[in-house]
Each structure stands twice: as structure tokens, then as C-alpha cells.
Amino acid sequence: MMKAAKLPRVIPVFPLPGALLFPRARLPLHIFEPRYLQMVEDCMATPERLIGMVQPITESRLSAIGCAGRLTAFSEMEDGRYMITLTGISRFRIGAEVNGFAPYRSFEVSWDSFAADLGRAEHDPALDRAAFMALLRRYFDNVGFETDWDSLHGADDELLINSLSMLAPFDPEDKQALLEAPSLSTRRETLVTLMEFALHGGTNEEMM
């Protein structure tokens, strides 16, 4: 487990709409753009091997909060593309952009508000698993998702809620709300609201 004192103050960021990472979760990525191929190569040369996943707002503006992952798996394809896996370490707040010669963007970041991310897995004591799974089944049927229900039933609270937050086809704004939830219980409540809203045929404009 990485200690707060070991977290760097400047990290490269990968803005990818709809791609969420949470502490202790794993995110597989297919890297093919030249600038991000360079980012991966530079990342592997650092002791921390961290990349920050961030939701873009526009082409130039990024969301204020992202999550950094440690590069824990890497393979190179015959055509030069990379398949990597990031394991979530901690969320961060974006600060000033650091200008340099790299083709990708790097930022000063603050980890101060997210000390709990470096601790043990969270639990959701208010989770009614039977009701939650029933809602989830209705939602998956509605969006045409298939899953391994036995694995979901056996997953611990954090793995269940965070994995669903990462995989569900919500809009980037909704994904960001899930990422910024201050606790696992709040994230689960947000997830329930989003699924119920989708089942009732709501739109983002109505939600706002």
C-alpha cells in the first residue's frame, strides 16, 4: 500500500470521457495515441508509475477531481499499441498545469482531501443488498447488459458499488458525481438514483 508521503506532487493525466477509476479498483486501458504511448513509457521510468485518470469537460478543461492509478500490468502489441492496467491508489484535486516538453499534460495535484483512499476497503453498513440487486437486475435488463450474477452477489460492498459505477453507461457528468461521492454509502445512493431515473425514462436535463 502506497503511503501519502510517497505520492508525487506532479503527475501525468489521461483525460478519457466516461472512464472512471477508484482506489483499489483495476482499469484496463488500450493505449494507441502517440502522446499517450509516450506517457506510458515515461510513467514506467518513474518509481511510483502513476497516471491520473480525469474526466474532460471540454477539449482544454478538465474536471477538478480525478483518481491516480499505479501501472501494474503492461503488454505491447505487435503494432506498437499498449495494453495496460491501472490499479487505483487515491483521488486527487487538480492544481496548476505544468508546462514541459512532453506531448501529454501534467498537473500539480493535491491528495490532502483523500487520505481515506489510502486506507482499507470501505464498507456500506446501510446497503440493503437484496433490494439493490433487484434494482440492478431491472436496470441491466433495461440497458441490455449481461453479467455474472453469482460474482456480483459474492462481491464485497466496495468492489460491487465501485465496479458498477465504473461499468454502467452513465453520462460523464454522472460518472464524475460518483467519483466525487465522499463515502461509499453516498456513492451507492447516487448510483441508485441514477438507475431509478434511467428506468423511469428521465433525461439529464430533467435531473439537473
Rank of each mutant, 00 (worst) to 15 (best):
R138L: 14
K6W: 10
A116F: 07
L152D: 08
W149Y: 11
R129T: 03
E146Q: 15
S185Q: 13
E146C: 07
G119P: 07
R35E: 07
S106N: 04
R137V: 14
P47C: 05
D174W: 03
A121T: 11
L184D: 07
L16P: 06
E189Y: 07
R70P: 06
G69N: 02
T58R: 02
Q38E: 15
F145N: 08
P169F: 04
V10T: 14
A68W: 05
D171C: 11
F170L: 13
P47Q: 00
E196M: 05
Y104L: 01
N204G: 05
D171Q: 14
G88C: 10
R70N: 01
E48M: 06
R24H: 14
S110C: 08
D150M: 08
T72Q: 02
Y82T: 02
L29S: 03
A5P: 03
V54Q: 04
F170I: 04
L7I: 06
G119H: 02
R70S: 01
R9V: 09
D156V: 06
H123K: 13
I84S: 00
L135H: 02
V54T: 01
T190S: 12
E76P: 09
P28E: 06
R188P: 07
M83L: 15
L178W: 02
W111R: 00
D174M: 15
L20T: 07
D79V: 05
W111V: 09
Y104Q: 06
N142A: 15
R188F: 09
T72P: 09
E206R: 04
M166I: 13
P12S: 08
F140W: 14
T147S: 15
D112T: 14
Q176A: 06
Q176M: 05
E59G: 14
V143D: 00
A121P: 07
F197V: 07
I94M: 14
P47S: 00
P34S: 04
G18R: 00
L164Y: 08
S185I: 08
D156M: 12
V192S: 06
E189F: 08
E76I: 08
F145T: 04
S75E: 13
L20S: 03
